[in-house]
Every structure is written in structure tokens, then in C-alpha cells.
Design a protein around this nucleic acid. Structure first.
Length: 544
RNA sequence: GGCCCCAUCGUCUAGGUAGGCCUAGGACACCGGGUUUUCAACCCGGCAACAGGGGUUCGAAUCCCCUUGGGGCUACCA
């Protein structure tokens, strides 16, 4: 029986890196017909935000990564929030203390820093100086009385090399003494990650620990702790995946979005500080310190400012990709292929195929760059291959969050629009192309370049006037009828179809980009088309 | 600084565990051409890599060593 888990700490939105970790664990479990557990590692009271766990769960659900055990679904190994498992951790800490496998410490931060500095000066790795004799309960009382913090450290075996076996990296040996005694209980009574993780993995009977390479150095210590607590029973297999790097340079991190925004604000000649603080809902001082690089406001504030300034921020969180019009199917497929492949030339794969082909032994060792251009291409392929009703569902969800007028369309019309959008790369593009259909005739925004190029140059307005008359003369607007009319007009004028179609397009949409023109006119209706042409002719006649 | 991991086209990667099937395959991007009612899409063609240096071997992308480069960790964060 395979049991895997995803164990995020609820500090914010689900990040692409975290999503990839979750996905690999989920795929591994599904492939083997095993169990996938979601566990929330909320042991750091300072960093946790109340809504983060909910957000992470929403994002996982959007991706289609459903957990078999965990918050909201329950299971036999709960509770699944570490903050609710304190009594369990206390029990094992006590056991370790009693068996002399762990000991109390009373150091201050300054004292610890001094140790570390000394180690670095001597060009050796830092390892906590274990006392000859472990302090007893009376020492704890004394320390507390003095107002010192009390922590508990695990006594890592120092006389033997620590060996781990990793599915992707093979055998790794750490020299004796290399891994120092680490803290397992903080002075606030909470367990540290390295401790809670081991206890829970054992209790939840995890068979495969699949996580990022950043945890590789924690593994020898965790394994030693496991052996001290539970012997060799149920030792899980480890797989440390490569990490994902951003295509804009460094590590793919949450800091990228604030960084991009900050640079954009700095690049502006004039900063509309008042307006910015207003849309972001932050104090002027906060904005100032953000621009100086000293502090970072919350994500919603960052997003609001970016939207106000009209700048696109690099997508980092799963929700960012949703807002940029990507399908969850795309994200799952793309993320799965970052550091894994099925061993043949397949790339675009539906989820079922991914599950079927998944194999931990095919994880790659090298770090990979997140290539958004390739992601875009994947999205187009998935929009093409995903069942239309599913795309409709995704499109609706997207339209709702951006509050688009397109959302007022009936399912039938929306389906038609989706069909006409074949080859479109994102839902954002779909919305842009079809938006004009749902605006009032006088709400059309005319793109300056489009007007110049299509209407004012050559005889665009004159052609438009002719098109208007021909359309007016048509009893009923059908796609075929519109096409025939435009084609014959083009032929008559000895020009390409573009010359007659583009002025019409700009007249009804305001831009040169929209759904195919025949269908556009037909869907818009004769009445609205004529009205928009009249508005256009009137508006730009003077300028010609 | 210390410890650990990694290294094939610009990018994701196949091939590496069992050395010859590799004059290194695919995909995205890019370039050229075609098609076209816009943006896309679509079709055809092209460019492009085994980080460097030593070994081992009849033979190395594949095994070993060194160098260089990249990444991670080095918290009372996870």
C-alpha cells in the first residue's frame, strides 16, 4: 500500500513549486492505487495566516488534486492540522527526554549566534556543543526563573556516518558529526518541522516522502530521529525532487511579484501615491517603505496596485495562473513534465494518462526552468482537447472572477464563442475577443492605432459606408450572407477581403482583434452592427 | 566559509543504471516560406547541445577523477 502526503505550511497562496510537490505525491498515490494525505503544518504561529489553509485547499481542488485524508474530508489518522496534535508531540518529546535521547537547552539567540560565528571563522560546519551531562527538570525550573527560554534538542548520533537512500539521488552519506543536534521543541512549546514531520509521517503510515531538494539536508537528521523513536519500522522511502527556477532569472519565488511591481513604480516619472495607497488600501508610509524595498504589503494589495497601473506580474501562485486564463488541466500537465517524463515522446497528456504513466524512478535530478512560453502552448493544446462543456465551466469561473460582461451570455452563445476561439491560447484572450458583443453600442473603446491604420488610411471610412448600405439592404443577416456580401464587394473593388472586413471589425469592436468577422456581425445583430457603424462614421468623419 | 546535490540544443527533455543501435531523438521558442477576414491557429523547411580537461576502453554523451559553473541547506521557517 502506497501512502503519500502533501504537507504545506499555511503561509499564503499555493505556489507553483508547492503545487508540483503536491501533484507528484498525488500522482504517485493514484498510480499505485494508494492514499494521498493532506496535512497542514501550522506549527509556526508567527507565519501562519488564517485564510491560507483554505486558499491552499481551494487551489488544490481547482487543480483536481483531491486528498483522501485531511482537513474537511477527515480520515483515520487525524487531526490533520499539526496545531491540533500538540498532545501527541508532547508525548514523544517526553519519551525522548526520558530515554536520554533528547535534552533541554537554555541558550539565547545571541549565544547561538556567537557559536555559529566562531564555527565559520574556523572554517568548519556548525554543530551544537552537546553538554556532557543533560540538564534535569530542576535546571529547567531554574532557567525559567531566570527568564531564559527552554528548548529541547534531539541528540543526533555523532559517532557513525548517517546514510540515506534517495529514489532519485541514490545513496548519500554524511560524515560522523556532520549533522548536529537540532531543536525539536521550540520555547513556545510547539514542535519544530523536523520533529512533527517525523512523528506524523510515522503515525500516518507514510510510505513515500516526496518533496523538494531543499529538504535533502533535513533527511539524515529526520531519519535518525525516526530510528530513535520507532526503530526501523515503516521507514519511508525518500524522493527529493529537483527545484524549479524562474525564467526571469533566479529562483521561482513569491518575491518576484512584489519585485516586478516595485520596479514598475520606480520606473514611472510620476508616482500617483495617493491613488496607489487608495486602491491598495495601505498607509502612505507602507507604500513608501515598499518602494524603498524595506517592506512588502500583502498580495491583494500588490495585485490591486498592479491592476491599477496596468502592469502584468509574473505568475507565481496557482491563482495567478487561473487569473491569467490557464486551464487546470494545462497546469497539471505542465507541472508534471517539470522534472519528470513518461519515457517516450508524449508531452500533451490528459490527467488519466499522467496517472497511468507516472513512475518515481523517472524523476530527473537537474533543476528546471519554468518556461511560460511553453506553458502557453500547452494551454492552447488543452483548450483544444478538453471537452467543450468542461472548457465552458472553466471559462465561466474565469469570467466570474474578473467580473466580465461576457458572463451575461447564455450557455449556448458562450459555447459558440468557445468554438470560434479554436487556437486561442488563454481564457483571457477569449474574453478579449468576445467582449465587444456584450457592451452597449456607445461603450466601444476605439483603439487609436486600429483607427488610424484601418479607418483613416486609404479609404477605410468610404468602404465602411458602402458596407453599411449593403448590410442595411440585407433582409436577414446570416453568416453565409455576410460572407458572400463582403467577398463580392472585395472582388468588385479588386482588393483583398481584409480591406473590406477590417473597417467593419473596427467599427463593431473598436480593435483589429476579435472573433471571426462573419459570425461576429451575425451574433451582434443587424441593428447593433448598423448602429455601431453609424457611430463610427460620425465620430471619425471629421478627422478624415 | 562548511556540507550536500546537479550539469545534453535558448528552454523542457530522450539517451546514462546493463559503453557500440547517437553522423544525439522529440517538444516549446526562434528563423525562412506557404495559407489567411484580425489575433491566433494551421502546413512545409531550417538553425541549434553532450561545460572544460584528464583518464579507463578496441570504442564514452554514457564509467572514474579534477576544474569550472549552477542550485540547495547552513533558523526556536517549513
Amino acid at each position: 500500500m502506497v501512502v503519500t502526503r502533501f504537507a504545506p505550511s499555511p503561509t499564503g497562496y499555493l505556489h507553483v513549486g508547492g503545487a508540483r510537490t503536491a501533484l507528484f505525491n498525488w500522482l504517485c498515490a493514484r498510480q499505485a492505487g494508494g492514499t494521498f494525505i493532506l496535512r497542514i503544518e501550522d506549527t509556526d504561529q508567527k507565519r501562519n495566516t488564517p485564510t491560507a489553509a483554505q486558499q491552499v485547499m481551494d487551489d488544490l481542488r481547482w487543480l483536481g488534486i483531491q486528498w483522501d485524508e485531511g482537513p474537511e474530508v477527515g480520515g483515520p489518522n487525524g487531526p490533520y492540522l499539526q496545531s491540533q496534535r500538540m498532545d501527541i508531540y508532547d508525548k514523544y518529546i517526553k519519551k525522548l527526554l526520558e530515554e536520554n535521547k533528547a535534552y533541554y537547552c537554555f541558550d539565547t539567540t545571541d549565544e547561538l549566534d556567537a557559536f555559529r560565528k566562531e564555527a565559520e571563522a574556523q572554517k568548519r560546519s556548525f554543530s551544537y556543543p552537546r553538554p556532557q551531562e543533560f540538564p534535569g527538570e530542576s535546571d529547567v525550573e531554574k532557567a525559567k526563573a531566570q527568564g531564559r527560554d527552554v528548548t529541547v534538542r534531539f541528540a543526533v548520533p555523532q559517532d557513525v556516518p548517517l546514510e540515506i537512500t534517495d529514489i532519485v539521488r541514490g545513496e548519500i552519506t554524511f560524515a560522523p558529526g556532520e549533522i548536529g543536534d537540532f531543536i525539536i521543541q521550540k520555547s513556545d512549546g510547539f514542535p519544530t518541522y523536523n520533529f512533527a514531520c517525523v512523528v506524523d509521517d510515522y503515525l500516518m503510515k507514510i510510505t513515500h516522502v516526496i518533496r523538494g531538494q531543499e529538504h535533502l539536508m533535513n533527511t539524515p537528521g529526520q531519519q535518525a530521529l525516526w530510528k530513535a523513536l520507532f526503530g526501523d519500522s515503516q521507514l519511508p522511502k525518500y524522493a527529493h525532487m529537483s527545484v524549479t527556477i524562474s525564467d526571469s532569472g533566479g529562483k521561482l519565488s513569491k518575491r518576484e511579484r512584489p519585485k516586478t511591481l516595485r520596479n514598475a513604480i520606480k520606473a514611472r516619472q510620476e508616482i500617483e501615491a495617493g491613488k496607489l495607497t487608495e486602491v491598495a488600501g495601505i498607509a502612505p508610509e507602507e507604500l513608501e517603505s515598499f518602494i524603498k524595498g524595506k517592506a512588502t504589503p500583502d498580495m491583494p494589495a500588490i495585485d490591486a496596485m498592479a491592476e491599477y497601473l496596468g502592469i502584468g506580474l509574473p505568475e507565481i501562485n496557482i491563482v495567478d495562473f487561473f487569473k491569467s486564463g490557464y486551464l487546470p488541466e494545462t497546469m497539471v500537465n505542465f507541472l508534471a513534465l517539470l522534472g519528470w517524463n513518461p519515457g517516450d515522446n508524449r508531452e500533451i497528456m490528459p490527467i488519466g494518462e499522467l496517472i497511468e504513466s507516472f513512475d518515481l524512478s523517472r524523476l530527473s535530478k537537474a533543476n528546471s526552468l519554468f518556461d511560460r512560453k511553453k506553458l502557453l502552448s500547452f494551454n492552447m493544446e488543452h483548450i483544444k482537447m478538453t471537452p467543450p462543456e468542461k472548457v465552458l465551466e472553466h471559462f465561466r469561473a474565469y469570467l466570474k472572477t474578473v467580473n466580465s460582461p461576457v458572463n451575461s451570455a447564455e450557455d449556448e452563445l458562450l459555447s459558440k464563442i468557445i468554438k470560434l476561439c479554436e487556437g486561442t491560447r488563454t481564457l483571457v484572450d477569449m474574453e478579449r475577443k468576445s467582449r465587444f458583443l456584450f457592451l452597449d453600442n456607445n461603450e466601444i473603446q476605439y483603439d487609436e492605432k486600429a483607427v488610424k491604420k484601418v479607418l483613416l488610411k486609404s479609404d477605410g471610412l468610404a468602404v465602411l459606408a458602402i458596407v453599411r448600405e449593403k448590410l442595411a439592404a440585407m433582409e436577414q443577416l446570416t453568416e453565409q450572407g455576410i460572407e458572400d456580401m463582403l467577398r463580392s464587394l472585395a472582388e468588385e473593388k479588386q482588393v483583398g477581403l481584409g480591406k473590406v472586413a477590417q473597417p467593419l471589425r473596427v467599427a463593431i469592436c473598436g480593435t483589429t482583434v476579435s472573433l471571426p468577422i462573419f459570425e461576429s456581425v451575425q451574433m451582434l445583430s443587424k441593428e447593433n452592427t448598423l448602429a455601431r457603424i453609424d457611430i463610427t462614421l460620425k465620430k471619425f468623419a471629421a478627422e478624415n
